[in-house]
């Protein structure tokens, strides 16, 4: 009996319309780490930072340097602030149209961080509907203190220092593929194609000629 009830509950959970599109982008541990990094930056810079992401009109991810993860940035209490805002729209599998997103930065800094700064760093709204939406969101929000400092706000940089005491067992994994292929794959395909196409074209034409000669001889 209990098993049947659980099965029904599971089925209802899985098939509630929109359930697949609900949820959050960031994992709780990542949210906490992000909020803490922003809190440390706030301490250095005296600027409040936060983020608020809506998925299909509902707040899914939020947090701030003031209140930590899970709560939208406070409306009051910060002299200076910069908040990352995003609207993500997921469409259902059977619907027409594609997932989309828009991003903006709300700030009262005299020279506020801009979306174009994030684009310079390699991020855009489309990243929030990509496979690595979580790391993109972490990076875009995490970049706010960096961008606030590099603009003319009289805000100090967050100090960068190399890590110490790194466990010896930890190291990089999944080494990336060739830089040459990543940079120039199009040219490699183009010129490699030309190299192969030459002989192919020659033998094709030669075959056509022989076929034509055979047909003529038969006639």
């Amino acid at each position: 009996m209990i098993g049947r009830v659980l099965a029904v509950l599971l089925a209802v959970t899985l098939f509630v319309p929109g359930a697949a599109s609900a949820g959050t982008i960031l994992q709780p541990a990542d949210e906490t780490e992000l909020a803490q990094a922003l809190a440390d930056a706030q301490e250095d810079q005296d600027v409040c930072y936060g983020w608020s992401v809506n998925i299909n009109g509902v707040v899914s991810d939020a947090g701030s340097s003031v209140d930590g993860p899970g709560r939208p940035p406070p409306d009051a209490g910060c002299g200076r602030f910069a908040t990352f805002l995003a609207e993500v729209s997921y469409t259902c599998d059977s619907c027409e149209g594609e997932d989309s997103a828009s991003i903006s930065i709300e700030s009262n800094l005299p020279d506020p961080p801009k979306v174009s700064d994030l684009e310079d760093l390699g991020y855009g709204a489309g990243d929030l509907v990509g496979e690595r939406d979580d790391s993109a969101l972490l990076d875009m929000v995490g970049a706010l203190p960096l961008l606030a400092a590099q603009r003319a706000n009289n805000v100090p940089n967050v100090e960068y220092a190399p890590a110490t005491g790194v466990p010896a067992k930890d190291g990089p994994t999944n080494s990336p593929g060739s830089d040459l292929l990543r940079d120039r794959w199009f040219l490699l395909v183009l010129f490699g194609g030309l190299l192969v196409f030459g002989p192919l074209w020659f033998f094709y034409k030669k075959g056509q000629e022989q076929l034509s000669m055979t047909t003529t001889a038969k006639e």
Partner: peptide
């Protein structure tokens, strides 16, 4: 760490920061 390789560093809760925190 944890993004491009292994990471056995700290897990932590939000401890806050900022002026007066």
């Amino acid at each position: 760490g944890g993004f491009w390789g292994t990471f056995s560093g700290r897990g932590e809760s939000f401890r806050g920061g900022g002026p007066g925190a």
